[in-house]
Design a protein around this nucleic acid. Structure first.
Length: 513
RNA sequence: CGGGGCGUAGCUCAGCUUGGUAGAGCGCUUGGUUCGGGACCAAGAGGCCGUAGGUUCAAAUCCUAUCGCCCCGACCA
């Protein structure tokens, strides 16, 4: 058992932090609410970027970059937007520092700006401003741009990856000729996100739309993918907004239409953030530490040699080289030998994704190394000792179920490993889906909702007529919120658990991060 | 911003009540014995006790101020 990780059953929040610390994914920074993403954690983000970016390109989008700083006045142009973000904006008010004569050794701001700048909490406003200049005619549409960047929201309470003051994300911003096109784009990107979450990170998600009280400030409709974490709390994993003509009107994004009339564009925006890393951790990991879904894992296999004498080391090393040649090819083994490196040798298993196989030659005990790679979530470990070499086999250890399998060297090939990785992905997704389904409960009354939320947790599915006041009251009484109105509706009618009125709307309630 | 708690070695903390030469465990370095799931022994490096005042012969310890952090709530991807 891991001695540096608190079990989930004892303290789920501490477990989450322990897993991050043990896997060295992130660290606290000197600035409150901000985190340092360490190499192991950033590798996960790079994996997410790689796969999502491909999906964006495949759906016709291109990347661009807009500035970090936004004129303060921009934020005021869209009424709902101000309401939503004004409270959490960091503001730049000065252009330089100068020595403070009243306090020797300290600096003070100088050169006040005429108009303060805000650090983007999201970029609808500045992008809207630019789109207004770029779009003149229906021939300029659609505009399909994404940007990868950081944003800042001065959060009151922060948690590594799940909610930090500064976070990394991508934000797609599109402009369309018609409402139908904007709606199609919004739903298309929701599908992209859902498919990405399930097929890349093995996180099953529910597609739905947000109620009025939960939607993005300035959107007509906010769609969401909602995941369920192992403690029974929901996590919003990504959002796709149909902004209607709200921002087009606020930023004057107009075009001359096919009918020779000026018209406002219909715009969308959609994003996922480093929160996805938090979701991945919480959806899959166990009391032994991180479990990395195979597609995002920077290292897919860690090889641990076992030896005592120099002779044994030579024997084991030669055998490991055979394994490597069969997995990555002789050329890559040669190339890797030339790369400057530490005692941990690494070999590209897949050059397209950058995923590697590592061999841990560090001077420490095999047990230490097992824990080391296990806690970092490496999908598979291979153990090679003198006894194995004698039999032409090695020990394969599965991170997911911690199973051991004696494996013949002759079975090893890239297809063999790809099969293992694919199988692990399927098992992870199935396990998470089974958990989600087992923790989705139907409630027929408000009392049932209350008892499920407080006793069992998870998603509570029920008939509910979305209503701002009712939702506020329910949140006050149960802390649960409407996570979404699932797109998959039964089509039946029932009584709203709160008002008792007949409705055909079914929603999911849950406690949320 | 309300309510709690805490600032002492890289980390987790003891010492403070009742002032008197700075401590432990983990981690780190070196050497040896080890090595198939977190080894052991020995030696060693590492601290303006958050910061600034005050009381005192003497302050990590008492007093005052200040800064910062963590937890619980309100806000949120």
């Amino acid at each position: 058992m891991a001695k540096n990780i608190k079990p989930r059953s004892e303290d789920y929040a501490q477990w989450y932090l322990d897993v991050i610390k043990a896997a060295q994914l992130a660290d606290y920074s000197p600035v409150r609410g901000c985190m340092v993403i360490r190499p192991e954690g950033f590798a996960l983000w790079e994996g997410i970027q790689r796969d999502l970016d491909r999906r964006f390109k495949e759906t016709g989008h291109v990347n661009a970059y807009f500035p970090l700083l936004i004129p303060q006045s921009f934020l005021a142009k869209e009424a709902q937007h101000v309401e939503g973000f004004a409270m959490e904006c960091a503001i730049v008010t000065h252009t330089k520092l100068e020595k403070d004569p009243t306090k020797p050794g300290t600096l003070r701001p100088a050169g006040p700006l005429e108009e303060p700048l805000i650090i983007r909490p999201t970029s609808e406003t500045i992008i809207g401003h630019m789109y207004a200049q770029w779009i003149q005619s229906y021939r300029d549409l659609p505009v399909l741009i994404n940007q990868w960047c950081n944003v800042m929201r001065w959060e009151l309470r922060t948690r590594l990856f799940l909610r930090t003051s500064e976070f990394l994300w991508q934000e797609g911003h599109t402009a369309h000729e018609t409402a139908e096109q904007a709606q199609a784009e919004t739903l298309q990107m929701l599908d992209v996100y859902a498919d990405f979450a399930e097929q890349f990170l093995a996180i099953p998600v529910i597609k739905g739309y947000k109620t009025e009280s939960e939607k993005f400030p300035g959107a007509d409709t906010t769609y969401t993918i909602e995941g369920l974490m192992q403690d029974g709390k929901a996590l919003q994993c990504g959002t796709s907004h149909n902004l209607g003509q709200n921002f087009a009107k606020a930023f004057d994004i107009k075009f001359l239409g096919r009918d020779q009339q000026q018209a406002f564009c219909h715009t969308t925006s959609w994003g996922v953030s480093t929160r996805m890393i938090g979701a991945t951790i919480m959806a899959h990991s166990d009391d032994e530490g991180l479990i990395t879904p195979p597609h995002v894992a920077p290292n897919v296999v860690a090889i641990v040699p076992i030896f005592k004498t120099p002779d044994e080391k030579a024997t084991v090393s030669a055998f490991i080289e055979k394994i490597l040649v069969q997995l990555v090819g002789a050329d890559e083994v040669t190339a890797a030998a030339k790369r400057a490196g530490s005692d941990i040798a690494s070999f590209f298993f897949d050059k397209a994704t950058g995923q590697k196989i590592v061999v841990d030659w560090r001077d420490s005990r095999p047990g230490d190394k097992q824990y080391h790679w296990e806690q970092r979530g490496v999908p598979f470990r291979i153990e090679v000792g003198p006894r194995d070499v004698a039999g032409g086999v090695f020990v394969l250890k599965h991170r997911l179920d911690r199973a051991k399998a004696i494996t013949n060297l002759t079975d090893v090939s890239p297809e063999w490993l790809r099969g293992l990785l694919k199988d692990m992905h399927t098992k992870l997704l199935d396990r998470a889906r089974a958990f989600r389904d087992a923790n989705t409960t139907v409630a027929a009354s408000y009392d049932e909702l209350k008892s499920i939320v407080s006793d069992k947790g998870g998603f509570v599915r029920c008939f509910f007529k979305p209503d701002r006041a009712a939702e506020a009251k329910i949140k006050e009484e149960t802390k649960a919120t409407v996570r979404c109105v699932p797109l998959a509706q039964s089509g039946q009618k029932g009584k709203c658990i709160y008002s008792g009125e007949e409705t055909d709307v079914e929603v999911l309630f849950a406690l949320a991060y």
